[in-house]
Simulated scan of single mutants.
Amino acid sequence: MGSPGRRRIDEIGEESRRRILDAAEELFAERGFDRTSFVDIAERSGISRGSIPWHFKNKEGLVMAVVERAVNREIPPDRYQTVPPIAELFDDAAALAQDANLPLLFMILAKAIGGAEAVRGQYQEFLTRRRGGLEDWLRAQRPKDADPETAAKQERVFAVALNGALLGIHLQSLVDPDSFDLREVLRSLATVLDDNLNGVWRTLPVPATTRPTDTRTRGRNQSRD
């Protein structure tokens, strides 16, 4: 069991991290990523400038932490460990579109595509975690008699496709929000996914219960009798 002093240090660390994230979130929304410095964040948060890289390594790590916290507010990491209805998950996605930090997600994506290696690595980790959550959700619905290896491959494909579709829809909602009803589009996608997922499960091979050599072996055994 840890000492009271150690627990207090942990609490201070978590409180400092929260205050830095709160300040960064406000400043990124007000000024944008490029025009916000560690000095600005330190002044807003009341935390020393030197503590910021200690918590987040660099500015890219900080902005990814801001984005991930915003995503987790609407879609917690353990959201996919149960099997909520597809429509309910897409309602979560619609709520995420209203978060003021969503534009940061695409700003970071642009930097990652542009060749910023530090940003790219962190963005890849972020996408991997989100896809992993979707794979967990799909795996929870997998028929018990499905071939595990084939099912896992199909779940990865579905997770990538679904994550890409959600990112694309959210991007359009930011650029051209008045051209479509976001919730209506997401519900339509949920219906398509539901229909196709059921079809995929039906086509998955069932693991063989006997080896191909069993019949030949039985034939040889019978000939000896």
Score class of each variant (00 low, 15 high):
Glu74Leu: 07
Gln172Thr: 01
Arg139Ser: 13
Asp225Thr: 13
Ala93Met: 07
Trp201His: 15
Asp214Cys: 02
Ile86Cys: 05
Glu25Val: 06
Leu167Cys: 02
Tyr80Glu: 02
Arg130Asn: 05
Gln154Ala: 15
Arg142Trp: 03
Leu27Lys: 04
Arg69Ala: 15
Glu155Cys: 10
Glu68Tyr: 08
Ala70Tyr: 03
His55Thr: 09
Leu89Glu: 09
Gly114Thr: 04
Pro205Thr: 11
Thr213His: 06
Lys111Cys: 02
Arg6His: 14
Thr210Glu: 14
Ile9Val: 14
Pro53Leu: 05
Pro77Trp: 03
Glu25Gly: 15
Lys111Arg: 11
Ser37Cys: 08
Tyr123Leu: 08
Phe158Trp: 13
Asp147Gln: 10
Val157Lys: 13
Arg69Asn: 12
Ile169Phe: 04
Gln81Ser: 14
Glu117Pro: 07
Pro148Phe: 09
Val185Trp: 00
Ala100Phe: 00
Trp54Arg: 15
Glu155Asp: 12
Glu149Val: 15
Ala93Thr: 03
Ala152Thr: 09
Leu134Cys: 06
Thr210Ile: 14
Val175Cys: 01
Ser188Pro: 00
Gln98Arg: 13
Val67Glu: 00
Gln154Trp: 12
Ala29Met: 02
Val83Gly: 07
Glu125Pro: 00
Pro148His: 10
Arg131His: 05
Ile52Trp: 04
Gly46Asp: 06
Thr217Lys: 06
Arg73Pro: 00
Asp194Phe: 01
